[in-house]
Simulated scan of single mutants.
Amino acid sequence: MRVVNTIKDKRIRIICGHYGSGKSEFSVNYIKNLKKNYDKVALIDLDVVNPYFRSREKAEELENEGIRVISSSIKGSNADLPSLAGDINVPILDKSYEVVIDLGGDSVGARVLGRYREDIANDSYDMLVVLNANRPETHTPQQAITYIKSIEESAGLKVTGIVNNTHLLKSTTIEDVMRGQKLAEEVAQELGIDVRYTACMERLADELPEELKDRYFPIGMHLRKEWMS
């Protein structure tokens, strides 16, 4: 797997995105990449809304790679209960950790961040929104902007960057990616932020325009079984 240079990202990275955007898949890929650059990394799964394809489902695999995973205090990935572990604040406050927070995909899910908002705001953070232009809820710039503003209002934190993760799973074409890139750039320009990453499977990397290759983020499918792809 290509190692992505994430040095421009702040120590605490909050990843959010609408259901079907691929934000949990991106979070897992991101933390795996981060581990290649840092010794102490932690993935905090704060998604208490979506019961499917949650990053904590890969907790054992990630922990075997030296990645600390914190989520629900209820043991078992199938326990769909909004209960949060008491040690979530540990890597947020411990500056020796690089942190990824996988946040719930809507404004209701973003509210859970309120408990940790002050500690995060007092530190160095990025809040990245994963956009999939194929999702009907974020299909247009105005829809995406409305979604982002609802997340900001609920979380009490500002979005600082966008990840274009436009896909149709294994049927994704470079045309899909570029259509999503256009959407992401329009939204970013309107909000005065940047398109931080263009995420896609490695088979499409060579087809990306040269100007996008410095922000290319390769995506492997970790949360979906092969037959679901």
Rank of each mutant, 00 (worst) to 15 (best):
I162Y: 02
G20P: 14
M201R: 15
L43P: 09
E190M: 13
V90D: 12
M201N: 13
G156R: 12
R117T: 10
L168S: 11
S107R: 06
N165K: 01
L103C: 01
G76A: 01
S27N: 10
R2H: 10
S171A: 07
I70N: 09
I70Y: 14
L93S: 04
L183V: 00
I14R: 11
G104P: 01
V48L: 10
K10P: 13
A184H: 02
G86S: 12
V3L: 11
N29R: 10
L62I: 13
D194H: 08
V129N: 00
H167N: 12
D87E: 14
V4Q: 05
M221Y: 09
K75E: 14
D176F: 08
S72G: 07
L212S: 09
R68K: 14
E190R: 11
I219V: 14
K58F: 02
A184T: 01
D123V: 07
E61N: 07
Y52G: 05
S73L: 12
L46N: 12
R56D: 13
D119G: 12
R179K: 15
A199G: 06
S21W: 00
L183C: 00
K32S: 03
K182I: 06
L43F: 08
D206E: 15
L34I: 11
E190C: 13
V177N: 05
T173V: 06
I148L: 06
I15V: 14
V177Q: 05
G109W: 06
G109D: 04
Q142M: 08
P141L: 02
T6E: 11
I92L: 07
V159P: 10
I219Q: 08
I174H: 08
E185S: 14
T140V: 02
I148M: 09
S71G: 15
G161C: 07
V129S: 00
Y197E: 09
F53I: 01
S27E: 04
S72E: 04
N165G: 03
I162G: 01
S83Q: 15
Y125H: 05
Y197D: 09
I151L: 06
S24K: 10
V48W: 03
S96A: 07
R215D: 03
I70R: 10
N122K: 15
R2I: 12
N64T: 08
R224F: 08
H222A: 03
G105Y: 03
D119T: 11
L128Q: 11
E118W: 02
T173Q: 07
S124M: 06
A184G: 02
E226L: 10
D102Q: 09
Y125G: 09
N33L: 06
I174T: 06
I120D: 02
S55G: 14
M178F: 15
T198G: 08
V130Y: 03
V3P: 02
S150P: 05
A59P: 06
Y125P: 05
D123K: 13
I70E: 10
A133Q: 13
D126Q: 04
E207P: 01
L223A: 11
S229A: 08
